[in-house]
């Protein structure tokens, strides 16, 4: 049997041993997972960012403009010195400024404008039929907004709307939790498939 499969099988069992109780075998497997994930990500970042995008073009191909991002990157390390920590503010300011400039218009369009236009769908379809889903969306939207509106006391009609909002929120949380349970079970079933098929050869 492939040594990789044996290691993967034993580590799967080590992780699931946590369901009984916390134990050193689980702790070792968990630490290994975290260490490997970070190590792998570091190697990928080193190669794809520093080597491919910086060192090779700068030192092998003489692309001198890359000295600017190199210096900005190095300035980030000035945070470790109390005297020079102000230097790190420049690359941070650049990152925040550029990030906000790129993100704000995109988010405003995709998360706000498009979502609002999708939420105010007509209650009647083109064929003249009543669209119950559109009504649920409008009621859900207004009542949930009412729940998060804190500038007025939740009394009377406002209180009833806010109360309805909590029901919509509960339905959302319930659906999300249900999907999460489904997701975790899928992971369990995936590992059972691996254990029975590849590791133990019980199934073909």
């Amino acid at each position: 049997m492939d040594i990789g499969i044996i290691i993967a099988g034993l580590l799967t069992l080590a992780i699931y041993s946590f369901l009984y109780r916390d134990n050193p075998v689980y702790k070792a497997a968990e630490s290994l997972l975290i260490g490997l994930s970070i190590g792998y990500a570091l190697v990928i970042f080193w190669q794809t960012t520093l080597v491919d995008r910086l060192f090779r073009p700068l030192f092998n191909e003489g692309d001198l403009i890359l000295i600017i991002p190199l210096l900005l990157g190095l300035m980030m390390f000035s945070r470790f010195s109390q005297k020079l920590t102000w230097l790190s503010r420049l690359p941070i300011a650049l990152m925040i400024g550029a990030g906000a400039g790129v993100s704000i218009p995109a988010m405003l369009y995709a998360r706000t404008l498009k979502q609002i236009s999708a939420s105010v769908a007509p209650l009647y379809t083109a064929s003249g039929g009543f669209d119950f889903s559109a009504l649920v969306i409008i009621l859900g939207l207004l009542s949930t907004l009412a729940y998060f509106y804190f500038s007025r006391r939740h009394e009377g009609a406002m209180g009833k709307m806010a109360k309805a909002g909590t029901y919509f929120l509960m339905i959302f949380f319930g659906a999300t939790f249900g999907y999460t349970v489904m997701s975790r079970l899928s992971t369990l079933i995936g590992r059972i498939d691996f254990l029975l098929t590849d590791f133990l050869h019980v199934l073909r």
Binding site: A110, A118, T176, M182, S183, S186, G190
Partner: peptide, 26 residues
């Protein structure tokens, strides 16, 4: 998507920004 993420993407699906979804093991 993993099933746990489906509700996060529902608004994008409803608004037509996301064309379609294949969610979870199901």
């Amino acid at each position: 998507l993993t099933a746990a993420m489906i509700t996060t993407y529902d608004p994008y699906l409803g608004s037509g920004q996301l064309y379609s979804v294949v969610g979870g093991l199901k």
